[in-house]
């Protein structure tokens, strides 16, 4: 344990599943927001014609890119599920058992990403 310097910050509650759910929701949103311009630019290649887009699709046909795409699927589903969590809390009457739901939601996201990976690799 530290003896000098900084006041120790709270770390206990970060094991709370709902805190993690909120953090995953935010990080996935940030990652997706940063990825989107790249996605739009890639698709926008079609303005130059089919050949330009085809070159890109060929380039992306590598295992590394496929893993990255699976990662994106995970991020998207995780963000969707996290958002649903927020919407449910804010719209409906309170219900217990949220931690179980949050963990289940994370599992759904992981499974989706995994399924995508299996199908494309």
């Amino acid at each position: 344990m530290a003896t000098g310097g900084e006041i120790r910050r709270d770390t206990g509650y970060r094991r709370n599943a709902l805190w993690w759910a909120a953090l995953v929701h935010r990080i996935s949103g940030l990652a997706l927001a940063l990825f989107l311009p790249l996605h739009f630019l890639a698709l926008g290649l079609a303005i130059e014609g089919e050949a330009a887009l085809e070159t890109f699709i060929r380039w992306s046909d590598t295992p590394a890119v496929k893993v990255a795409e699976a990662g994106l699927v995970f991020l998207l589903v995780a963000h969707l599920v996290g958002g649903l969590r927020v919407m449910v809390i804010e719209t409906f009457a309170w219900r217990p058992g949220q931690k179980a739901l949050a963990t289940a939601g994370l599992a759904v996201a992981a499974i989706s990403g995994g399924l995508f990976l299996i199908r494309v690799i």
Binding site: P37, L41, L43, G44, A46, I47, E48, G49, E50
Partner: peptide, 23 residues
């Protein structure tokens, strides 16, 4: 700024796949 950039690039991408080779 971010909203404008995303909307612009996004709609451009939609236009690109609906009217490919427009350039």
């Amino acid at each position: 700024i971010s909203g404008s950039v995303l909307a612009l690039l996004g709609l451009r991408a939609v236009a690109a796949v609906v009217f490919p080779g427009a350039l």
